[in-house]
């Protein structure tokens, strides 16, 4: 919901903290996910992820979440699905060019990022979306990635 997601962005710092606690837990559970089988857990995890992130961020399940680099404002709610910042059409009052009734997703993102500890991640160039991942769980993807990199380089520090 629009109102909820804007409230979340105004409290981006809190949600950043929650995420920072939550992610290592998910990753720690990697052996559990592995034992259960990633394919088998994908559907239930996806459902939980969709419900939680849908309610908070109006998440569109792109499958490659970058909320931590966008001030907790989901870029997939931008009518142009821009992932690297605002277009040139933002209205003088900060509202969206395409949907004038909505605040520009990226104006919110900028404000959210200014509150976050790692807010400068917003300056990183984001790669194009991989549309094959649409609808899949971003959480499990992070788990798989970190799991793979920690097992391939056991003696290298892998947390970001």
């Amino acid at each position: 919901m629009y109102r909820v997601r804007r409230w979340v962005v105004r409290h981006a710092r809190v949600f950043e903290m929650i995420y920072r606690r939550f992610e290592p837990v998910l990753v720690k559970l990697a052996p559990v996910w592995r034992r259960l089988g990633h394919e088998r857990v994908e559907a239930p995890v996806r459902r939980v992820e969709k419900a939680a992130k849908g309610a908070l961020f109006d998440c569109q399940m792109c499958g490659q979440c970058i909320l931590s680099a966008t001030g907790m404002s989901c870029p997939m709610n931008c009518p142009k699905t821009l992932r690297n910042g605002p277009c040139g059409g933002v209205r003088a009052d900060g509202h969206c060019e395409v949907k004038p009734e909505m605040m520009c997703v990226w104006v919110d993102a900028w404000e959210g990022s200014r509150q976050m500890k790692q807010g400068d991640l917003i300056h990183a160039v984001q790669l194009p979306v991989d549309h094959r991942l649409t609808g899949s769980s971003s959480w499990l993807r992070v788990v798989r990635q970190q799991d793979a990199s920690s097992s391939s380089a056991a003696n290298r520090e892998t947390t970001r």
Partner: peptide, 14 residues
């Protein structure tokens, strides 16, 4: 249909 598969910045990089 608006496409927006890339954005201006990812297009630059490509």
């Amino acid at each position: 249909k608006p496409v927006f598969d890339l954005d201006s910045i990812s297009l630059l990089q490509v």
